[in-house]
Amino acid sequence: MGSSKTDFPPIRACIFDVDGLLIDSEDAYTAVTNTILRENNRPDLPWKIKAQLQGRPGPEAGRIFHEWAKLPISYEKFVARNTELQAEAFRHCKPLPGVEDLLRKLQNARPKVHMALATSSIGKNFEIKTGSMKEMFSVFAEDQIVTGDDDRVPKGRGKPLPDIYLVALQTINEHIRRTSPEESEVQPEECIVFEDSVPGVEAGRRAGMRVVWCPNPGLLNEYQGREKEVLAGKTGEHKEEEIERHGTSTIKGSPGHVGEIDDGWAEMLQTLEEFRYERYKIEV
């Protein structure tokens, strides 16, 4: 995985993040957070901090946020207010540009391209956010939707660790074994991870998968000049002390290694409208 590579096999599976990648829910998170910060006379959330929160599981993101925010209210009060505002804001989420077309084309691709979701969002929030987009999300089988509170993901092993993406691949391969045993199982290098966050890109690279990074312009501005590091998974989002805190994983293929600069395993797109199927040998 470390060396530059151009002879990739055709892509047989696509695994998607959700927030800020398929739907505009990252904007909702920011609006809610800024409302609470302003109510407590604190400055708005800067991209420098938001970049660290994106893609991470709730507890880890919460720890980073509260160390920065130093809110004058109790944690319980914060959680109650946050939950109340999010429940309303999440109901208004919409698909991001190019998403519906991409999912439809992948669903109809021949040979078949398998699809799964891997989101750090807890199941309840995922349901609220996607409630008005049931048809769009129907391309994902229920057992191939992996959320942040999914029992199949070891506790404390969220992004930037690769476990959630490896679990998503396991769900795809379980489906293949169940429905078409004559088909070979999908290998990590036959998968694309679609991500908007920096920890998410690192998780995909550690899983040994190819990655399409589609960042928010605000995030891209924060990583200006470091885009190649992000694509290699080499920004150091995962610290060694986190391994000690989270323990080792029981998932096959984890924890995995990041890539190298310009190794051909990842690319950046401004929006998913730019996705090039032929680059990945996908026929639509």
Rank of each mutant, 00 (worst) to 15 (best):
F126G: 03
T130L: 08
T130W: 05
T130A: 05
T130H: 03
S132Q: 10
M133F: 07
K134S: 11
F137L: 04
V139A: 04
F140H: 07
F140P: 04
F140V: 09
D143L: 05
Q144K: 15
Q144S: 13
I145V: 14
V146E: 05
T147A: 05
T147G: 00
G148N: 11
G148P: 05
D150W: 08
D150E: 08
D151N: 10
D151I: 08
D151T: 09
V153N: 09
K155M: 13
G156H: 13
R157N: 09
G158D: 13
P160W: 03
P160R: 05
D163M: 08
I164P: 06
V167F: 01
A168P: 07
L169T: 08
N173R: 07
N173V: 02
H175T: 15
E182D: 15
E182L: 14
E183T: 14
E183L: 10
E185Y: 02
E185V: 08
V186K: 06
Q187H: 05
Q187Y: 03
Q187L: 15
Q187W: 06
P188S: 09
C191R: 03
C191K: 08
I192R: 02
V193N: 02
D196I: 04
V198G: 01
V198N: 00
G200E: 01
V201A: 11
V201Q: 03
E202K: 02
G204L: 03
G204C: 06
R205E: 01
R205M: 02
V212E: 02
V212W: 02
W213F: 03
W213A: 00
C214P: 01
N216F: 12
P217Q: 09
P217E: 12
L219C: 12
L219A: 08
L220M: 11
N221I: 01
R226E: 15
R226G: 02
R226F: 10
G233N: 06
G233M: 11
K234W: 01
K234N: 12
G236W: 12
E237G: 04
E237N: 14
H238K: 13
E240W: 14
E241Q: 13
E242Q: 13
E242V: 02
G247T: 12
T250F: 04
I251S: 09
K252G: 07
K252S: 13
P255N: 12
P255S: 11
P255H: 04
P255C: 06
H257S: 11
V258A: 05
E260C: 12
D262S: 14
D263P: 09
A266D: 01
A266I: 01
M268A: 08
L269T: 00
L269V: 01
L269D: 01
Q270S: 15
